[in-house]
Write a protein that binds this DNA or RNA. Structure first.
Lengths: 253, 253
DNA sequence: CACTAAATGTTATAATTTTAACATTAACGC
DNA sequence: GCGTTAATGTTAAAATTATAACATTTAGTG
């Protein structure tokens, strides 16, 4: 709770800023204090640094903090998301140029893209870009602009034009709400332009949503249900068919 | 070395694709095998997953793999980079719009930006963007395009135009080679356009290089030494002054 | 079916990390 | 200076993780 403690943490944060991990032992040496002091700094003041098995890492870096907790609920949610993405994967073919929407829905799909030999992914989301950047066989095109932390994505006034210049094969769009009458919607207004541009440009439009989104309306409307060629969803029970079974979009998968 | 082993790793990689960590215990449960089997999978087949204190993490995610090793050489290198960035920090003021170049040189600077109340960072590098995205007080503008893994940065045919549209205050440029006669150069040709555009637009141009780059020439030339208003470097011994002392650029810091 | 070999499980042990308790040092007010 | 309190160091014990050895299961073969 001291100024010196904060100073140490700042020093360590600098060391970790470029990414990478720092062993507790080295951190202590770097600050000329004992390991215990570093431990105490970390527990007393809460900072962006977290301790993972004796190593310091930046907690807010993607792929570090959010510890996957395997309780009943999470596990089933995990299963649902993956079932969803496995179905979506069925529509992807070698050589495709894919538009991948922001949000967490399509994340599980990305690692499965490593099975292809040549793909191109177009996205405006930082988390998607990070996952795709790790894949050696996938070309990545990131649409830049001003960063919106809420959706981990970028927006600019000419993002629609940039999307329309690209030859996008298949657009995989996610949504926060799907309703037969009120259409397809999301939370953030800055997502509307890129989504609409991708829908307008792509040869095939896939809406990828889990069943929990049916009958839900969110602030930012961006498309009608029949703007999509395919709706990929995880269940086809009474609930989902109520909203999709009589729609114009062919319910494949 | 089995197919089933690879299958398990693929499954785990999917689970980790969205980022986050997975406890060994949960990973074992997820695959319906013992923890030992997961351990063996990880050691036998080498995959993108690494084990960090009982937790599985994506090794190629930024901020995870490159373990900071504190031997003499590394430590001094660390000190040099930070001295350099602390000097560069002196030129930054509240409210600035900064262009931050790609490479690892300017990374230590980024965490220090959290001391300001309002800043805007413009970059075309993914690692820079990730570090800045974590700072709540800094607006981030990422210039997108096709991703170049070699430099972790993006390039496009209209990146120069995009840079020139922005009101950049100060351009912090890094380089791989600095020579009085042959000018300032870098490794990758796709970096030339954004660097030159930033130099052309910015009100103040700062070249940030450590002394080891003096007298070195790299394939991609992008500027003359006197295109810069300030050269920020870590030493002013005989070697550096030989190259800079008699140049046109005022050697501040 | 028996045999073999690979894959996986189990257990014990070693190494490491975490926690807690107490000792020491440094800082500050009076 | 003295006494008090916060900060840091030291040490031992507990918990966790890693390694190694051996047991068991599984898959494939003649």
């Amino acid at each position: 709770m001291n100024g010196r403690s904060a100073q140490r943490l700042a020093k360590l944060q600098e060391a970790l800023a470029s990414g990478g991990t720092l062993h507790l032992r080295d951190a202590a040496e770097l600050c000329n204090v004992s390991e215990m002091t570093i431990r105490r700094d970390l527990t007393t003041q809460k900072s962006a640094i977290s301790l993972l098995g004796g190593r310091l890492v930046m907690a807010n870096y993607p792929g570090v903090t959010p510890i996957y907790d395997l309780n009943e609920q999470q596990a089933s949610h995990y299963q649902a998301k993956h079932r969803l993405c496995r179905r979506a994967l069925g529509y992807i073919q070698e050589g495709d140029t894919l538009f991948i929407d922001c949000g967490s829905t399509l994340m599980p799909l990305l690692s499965q893209l490593s099975h292809f030999h040549e793909l191109t992914v177009v996205t405006y989301a930082l988390n998607v870009a990070n996952a795709v950047a790790a894949l050696p066989n996938v070309r990545l095109v990131l649409l830049g602009g001003l960063f919106y932390p809420a959706s981990q994505s970028f927006g600019s006034d000419n993002i629609a034009a940039a999307i329309e210049r690209l030859g996008i094969n298949k657009a995989l769009i996610s949504a926060a709400g799907v309703d037969l009458e009120r259409g397809v919607s999301c939370f953030h207004f800055h997502e509307v332009a890129p989504k609409q541009a991708a829908i307008a440009t792509a040869m095939q439009r896939l809406l990828v949503v889990d069943a929990s989104k049916f009958g839900v309306v969110r602030p930012a409307y961006f498309a009608a249900l029949d703007d999509f060629d395919v709706v990929v969803t995880d269940e086809e029970g009474a609930h989902s068919s109520q909203y999709l079974g009589c729609g114009n979009a062919p319910l494949l998968s």
